[in-house]
Design a protein around this nucleic acid. Structure first.
Lengths: 128, 128
DNA sequence: CCGCTTTTTACAAAGTTTTTACAACATCCC
DNA sequence: GGGATGTTGTAAAAACTTTGTAAAAAGCGG
């Protein structure tokens, strides 16, 4: 069942001043250079970007990317976030915010830090 | 039902600086010398070339070339890729990229590694 | 049966993911 | 503020998965 059948139409790309993602080709460009991400790294970034501006809870990330249910204890998410940030270089902390005790949030490059959300997809349930 | 009936028009040939394929005659030339490929080798190369610049997932290759469904475990694809690369000689790794955990991608000879796609056919579903 | 092609097998190499251990940091409560 | 507690950051090791490779086995068409 494809996007047409589901009625859910997702943008097939994301782009801001420094970063772009092509969700079809799984290609990520940072300042026009291609970022080589592993599968999980890409899946994680991609998910965060698709919820840009919104907090995505750890549990949701672990469920969507790893298929883990909430009771599983693992640090692999943290490690993946770290590696992602490393690859995002100088912009890392600007792009990927830690929401202590809850999860992470991807912010588009020039996003005003406060007062923001529109055009977004419905939240992935913010536990807490 | 042929290309005209389906409405999908495919180019009947591919060519770049070193390699050319005639999809009608199933003839492959590498630096103007004819490459002798077996049937499966040709089918595989041909499919990859038709999606030049795009990732073709293993599952898609196994389905299109072998008619295998995703649950079948086989290494025959890897072996065929290897033999293809061997026959492509020095250009092998330039032409056929491995996308770890996902599949393979054929890149036209001077393809800019970044920032590329146009005139392509729709992707063969990238198993996310 | 013969020659060629295709697939499997077994092992090596490469790459990826997860865990572990500890440090740093945030939050809560007194 | 300051300690207790829990969470996240970080580096490195360990575990695991995928792909490369060579050789053998199996399949196929004359």
């Amino acid at each position: 069942m494809g996007p047409l059948e589901t009625g859910i139409m997702q943008p097939q790309a994301y782009g801001d001043e420094h970063l772009s993602l092509d969700f079809e080709q799984r290609v990520v460009l940072l300042d026009n250079r291609r970022l080589t991400l592993t599968r999980k790294e890409y899946d994680l970034l991609s998910l965060l970007v698709q919820y840009a501006g919104q907090i995505v809870p750890r549990d949701a990330l672990l469920m969507q990317v790893w298929g883990y249910s909430p009771e599983i204890r693992t640090r692999t998410l943290d490690v993946h976030v770290r590696r992602l940030r490393k690859k995002l270089g100088a912009y890392a902390d600007q792009y990927i915010e830690t929401i202590f005790g809850i999860g992470y949030r991807f912010q588009p490059f020039h996003a005003p830090r406060y007062f923001q959300q529109a055009l977004e997809r419905p939240a992935l349930a913010i536990s807490a």
